[in-house]
Design a protein around this nucleic acid. Sequence first.
DNA 1: TAGAATCTGGTGCGAACGCTCAGGTTTATT
DNA 2: AATAAACCTGAGCGTTCGCACCAGATTCTA
Lengths: 192, 192
Amino acid sequence: MNGTDPEMIADGRRRKGERRRRLLLDAVMRVVERDGVAAVSQRRVAAEAGVAPSAVTYYYAAVDDLLVDALTRVNDTYVAALATLPDDADAALRALAGMIAVGPERAHVMAECELFLLAARRPALRPQIERWNRAVDAFLAPHVPDPDDRAGVCAAVDGLFVRACTEPGLTVEEVYRTLSRLVSRNGRAALR
Amino acid sequence: MNGTDPEMIADGRRRKGERRRRLLLDAVMRVVERDGVAAVSQRRVAAEAGVAPSAVTYYYAAVDDLLVDALTRVNDTYVAALATLPDDADAALRALAGMIAVGPERAHVMAECELFLLAARRPALRPQIERWNRAVDAFLAPHVPDPDDRAGVCAAVDGLFVRACTEPGLTVEEVYRTLSRLVSRNGRAALR
DNA sequence: TAGAATCTGGTGCGAACGCTCAGGTTTATT
DNA sequence: AATAAACCTGAGCGTTCGCACCAGATTCTA
């Protein structure tokens, strides 16, 4: 994320502004979770955050910018999470599966997916996509050395994210099983 | 698709109606292609089809129904296309890659992707998702016999669809390469 | 303490939205 | 020719939307 840690800002005015920004972004996420990206509007977010509609305009010139910022933040958390997964292949895959198949907390997963589709149309989000792709690729690199093999596993990770959106009942066990199969077939163990 | 072939309907009135319905659905696809699912509205579709706004309401009680119908049709074409792919593994994968990486004609690919995300919220679209998943699974079954291995390849297919949306420059060659790698690693050839 | 920067909430405009409805046109049936 | 069914439309109602504008409150700097 481009945002500096709010607590590190000296100026108390700006600090309050940053806090306010977070309030709005959290509200956006709640709206996305409940009604989807399409339902995100200036007024609705304001109502969700308990704030005057004009406050949204104050911090974001257009609602579109708000959306971009919110989805960027979601991507941040995922990229960061990928970077801190354990080194051990099995443990890492299990953790990744846990990130994908999260029953009730689907909001972030769906937001990440909607980010992908949104990026297909909005150039402003393209860098986020590339960041995500690079992060997945880097995470898999140690376990699936061959780039061509890795491309398939990367695609599968994306596909599993989508499936997690469409199938709320998807379990961590299922995702883990699929992932570990893929890695064992395409990864180190399969190399001759 | 539930719709009967319009040309087979005896009643000229209904036939005209069916033609009209197609006109609207084509307009929807054009709007989706240009501005995304979010931009689909009664008035916009009507304008795109060169029809009075009330005409949309006449054929579809709510715009949501229009969207469901349009996306269902897209899914129809994909499911049908999957069913008629050649038996030969290599030829089939090449054809599938051609379905995914279609440069300018991305509209249908994106529509299929948006269908997936929409279905995450609308129960009316759930059956379409399951139909798609079954179709992919059935297509891959001869080439990737083991169900657990197949799950990974299925996920990768979905992921490649998403990637085709976010990367307009994705080539058929790249997709084919990835797919054939996956199948050779997970499929018949890899079995012991 | 003065002044600048930041924040806040209220009001309102123009546009687009979904949807209803009364009534007119076309086509099929009898 | 008469009746009915299906098709089609223009006008319009009520709602929501994004955004602009601005007066006043708050907060920091000097």
